[in-house]
Computed example of a mutant assay.
Amino acid sequence: MKVIGAMQTPGGDWRVEVVRHPSGSRWYRLIHHDNAVDFLTIGRVSQLLAQAGVDMAELVEVDTPSARAS
């Protein structure tokens, strides 16, 4: 599996990664501190962030080593 993109809140408390499996399938990973949830759709990511009081519009794109290598 490879992280091909990432966004996070300006303070870095919440991070959303786009993950690609070698088979070509993609999903989202939501990370908050030491907790991570895999295999999410973007809709579910949006729901979970909204429940936590985070607006998706607050997310900023961040560089990832594996995204640079793609």
Rank of each mutant, 00 (worst) to 15 (best):
M1Y: 07
K2E: 10
V3P: 02
V3N: 09
I4K: 14
I4Q: 00
I4M: 05
G5H: 08
G5V: 06
M7V: 09
M7Y: 14
M7L: 11
Q8T: 04
Q8W: 08
Q8H: 13
T9R: 04
T9A: 10
P10D: 09
P10H: 12
P10G: 07
P10Q: 13
G11P: 03
D13Y: 10
W14E: 06
W14Q: 03
W14L: 05
W14V: 10
R15V: 06
R15I: 09
R15Y: 01
R15T: 14
R15C: 13
V16Q: 13
V16C: 09
V16F: 08
E17Q: 15
E17K: 14
E17M: 06
E17R: 14
E17H: 05
E17P: 01
V18E: 10
V18S: 07
V18A: 10
V19S: 02
V19H: 13
R20C: 08
R20V: 09
H21D: 11
P22C: 03
P22N: 04
P22V: 08
P22S: 10
P22E: 13
P22R: 15
P22D: 11
S23Y: 06
G24A: 15
G24Q: 13
S25Q: 15
S25D: 11
S25F: 15
S25C: 08
S25P: 00
R26H: 11
R26K: 15
R26Q: 15
W27S: 15
Y28R: 09
Y28A: 01
R29A: 09
L30Y: 10
L30N: 06
I31Y: 01
I31H: 03
I31E: 09
H32I: 01
H33C: 00
D34S: 11
A36V: 04
A36T: 05
A36M: 14
A36F: 03
D38Q: 08
D38C: 02
F39G: 04
F39K: 04
F39A: 04
L40Q: 02
T41C: 03
T41A: 06
I42W: 12
I42Q: 05
I42F: 12
I42P: 00
I42G: 01
G43H: 14
G43R: 06
R44A: 04
R44L: 05
S46K: 14
S46E: 13
Q47T: 15
Q47F: 05
L48F: 03
L49G: 06
L49H: 07
A50F: 06
A50W: 02
Q51V: 03
Q51E: 15
A52F: 02
A52G: 00
A52T: 00
A52S: 14
A52E: 11
A52L: 00
G53N: 02
V54E: 05
V54M: 07
V54R: 09
V54Y: 11
M56I: 08
M56Q: 03
A57V: 02
A57K: 11
E58S: 14
E58H: 07
E58Y: 01
E58P: 00
L59R: 02
L59K: 02
L59S: 04
L59A: 00
L59N: 01
V60W: 00
V60A: 03
V60L: 08
E61G: 06
V62N: 02
D63K: 08
D63Y: 03
D63N: 00
T64M: 14
P65H: 07
P65V: 07
S66K: 08
S66L: 08
A67L: 06
A67G: 04
A69K: 11
A69T: 09
S70C: 07
S70Y: 01
S70G: 14
